[in-house]
Design a protein around this nucleic acid. Structure first.
Lengths: 247, 247
DNA sequence: TCAAAAGTGTTATAGGTACACCCATGT
DNA sequence: ACATGGGTGTACCTATAACACTTTTGA
């Protein structure tokens, strides 16, 4: 960068705003930041990296990166996710764009926030050149975060709860064959409350895209649970009719 | 964002990914585009401008502008709205960010889309240095739009319907003192369907922030309607409990 | 036979839907 | 008196919530 933000600021203030040369507008950058939630057996965590460089060196932060000049926003977000987790095919969704003038100490950088949720087990987060460390953090113990990342995380949490009401985001998170109890536990974890078993299952019956298999759990010291599978085809058929989950 | 410019540069050299000079990242710009809906007596329209300059000269487009170097995103959106309508104090809400590589023919420009809804009557849209013409357009007859603005408009329409379910966006749109029929007509227009009068009113009773005045309509050739007013204080009290409108 | 979790059924209440009816005003 | 829209009540039906009960397994 050729201009520091301070020099830049004062220069702008001196000038008539309407006569800013067009080049000045092309001196900003944008990044993507990913709020990657991890779920496994009633545990919801978020993937943070420890920054290895200034600014905010040593702080925990959301994984993110500048967007390449010839890269779509969505692609950039997927790239960040893939770099850190080696997971692909995970749906990632844009949630909000954060653009306060002073949010980045080195210049004008706005960031587009994305969120995704993945199965956390056995997923050892990858090391990365721009991350000194990578770790799943419990949502109850979030350290002080770099930039405005705390704000972004809060926003993402709210969005996750909304998404989960309307979309089967557990699709890629639960095992391929899952029990209804596992599904209930997923919802209970996200909403941080408990649901009645009977009522929960009654509600599920309306959603035709959860199909029962001719298979049951093995080696459990209680009545084995029947296994179910997400039926994508039926889901897409029903999608437009909308479903709602707000027990 | 997680990397400083310098850190990012060294990462690229180190890993020999692409040899993109860091300056390339700061040759992009961002804009805001506003989807301004106008409502008046069962009519919902959207404010479009006719572009007076290349690219897309002569095309209709959403009002928008580049974000000034020392300006927050939200401020930029409000500025665009104020310039065109001389309205202030209108809540404007970010909906999505559009960032396809080739969406702008002159360079890499991502745009943050905002939406607002205003009372349309007697609001003669202002001329503007960057707009050859400004006009309310019926949603049924939208001309071919510049850039990806058609996509942005579609997204905004969906968001408007969602907003209207959870938030009293009619607050700044209906007259200060309004009838329940006017309110019903507002919802019917947005959702493009009709509601049962009795049931609609029953639902409203739950929302304590619509207070009846000791006043009625004048000079109507039928039983005069009682007037109501939006009670912001009570709304804020009730807000957290959430309300839902989906008749 | 017991513990543990799966899975189903019952009931009371709240909320939604459809519809009918009466009311106040200007002409 | 009648047309017009305002305003209210009722009866039916479905959805929800709370809770009790039965079933199947391993130990």
């Amino acid at each position: 960068m050729t201009t520091t933000s301070r020099a830049f600021k004062s220069r702008i203030q001196q000038e008539d705003l309407y006569s800013i040369p067009i080049d000045e507008f092309f001196k900003s950058a944008f990044s993507v930041d990913c709020v990657i939630f991890g779920y496994h057996e009633r545990q919801l965590k978020v993937l943070l990296i420890e920054r290895g460089t200034e600014p905010y060196e040593g702080f925990w932060a959301l994984p993110g990166d500048l967007v390449y000049p010839y890269e779509d926003l969505d692609s950039a977000a997927s790239r960040v996710l893939n770099d850190l987790t080696t997971l692909s095919d995970i749906p990632i969704r844009q949630i909000h764009t954060f653009g306060k003038v002073d949010r980045h100490p080195l210049g004008r950088v706005i960031t587009v926030a994305y969120t995704a949720i993945v199965e956390m087990q056995d997923l050892t987060p990858q090391a990365s050149s721009w991350a000194a460390a990578t770790k799943w953090h419990s949502l109850k113990r979030i350290p002080k975060l770099a930039f405005d990342h705390r704000e972004i995380l809060n926003k993402a949490l709210g969005e996750l709860q909304e998404m989960v009401k309307h979309e089967p985001v557990w699709n890629k998170v639960l095992p391929e064959k899952f029990t209804l109890t596992q599904l209930q536990e997923f919802y209970e974890t996200i909403f941080n409350k408990t649901f009645d078993k009977g009522n929960f299952r009654k509600k599920l019956q309306d959603f035709k895209f959860i199909t029962k298999l001719d298979e049951a759990q093995q080696n459990v010291s209680h009545r084995p649970s029947l296994l179910y599978r997400f039926n994508e085809k039926k889901y897409l058929e029903q999608k437009n009719k909308g479903f709602f989950f707000d027990l």
